[in-house]
Amino acid sequence: MSVLMEFAIFPTDKGDSVSKQVSKVIGLIRESGINYQLTAMGTLIETDELPEALALVNSCYEVLEKDSDRVYCTLTMDIQKNKHNRLTSKVESIENKIGKVKK
């Protein structure tokens, strides 16, 4: 199984810049060993099971809630059985198709 999840989580009570708090979340994700990709608007992860993905979101929340009265989170998931490594293979598939397009 492949659980692709894109999520953004950040405190809303820390002013305009929350990079200090978000960097703590990314550090936790990095230490977890879960495959991830940081983007300007959120983070993509891929796990083998849904509970693992949801547990990661909960851990990220716990990092932020220690110093925040309000935390905002969005998440989108694509869950597919009998698939793996979609975090990179989906992007590679598009890049390969773009390379084959004639100008």
Rank of each mutant, 00 (worst) to 15 (best):
S93N: 15
I34K: 10
V57A: 10
Y36K: 04
Y72L: 14
A53Y: 05
K24V: 11
P11I: 14
Q80L: 10
I34N: 04
F10G: 07
K66L: 08
L64R: 04
D48M: 11
K20M: 10
E31A: 12
S93W: 13
E46P: 01
P51D: 09
T12Q: 03
A40P: 09
R70P: 12
L75H: 14
P51S: 03
T74E: 09
S32C: 13
I98D: 03
V71W: 12
Y36R: 03
G15Q: 12
V25A: 06
V71N: 05
K81M: 08
D13N: 11
V3M: 00
M41P: 00
E46R: 06
K102L: 12
T47M: 00
F7R: 11
I26T: 10
L4V: 07
L28P: 03
V71S: 05
T43M: 08
F10A: 13
V91P: 02
V91C: 08
T39V: 02
S19R: 04
G42V: 05
S32H: 07
M1I: 11
N35S: 11
E31Y: 08
K14G: 11
D78V: 00
E95N: 05
S59E: 15
K14Y: 06
L38E: 04
L4C: 07
G42Y: 12
L54Y: 04
L56R: 07
I9M: 13
K66C: 03
Y36E: 10
K97L: 12
L28A: 05
S17N: 14
V57P: 03
L38Y: 02
L44E: 05
E95Q: 12
I79K: 10
T47G: 09
L64T: 05
K14N: 06
C60P: 04
K24I: 01
K81C: 06
V57K: 02
G99M: 13
T39C: 13
L56S: 07
Q80W: 01
P51V: 13
T76F: 00
L4F: 04
G42E: 06
L87D: 04
T88R: 10
Q37C: 03
K100G: 06
S23R: 14
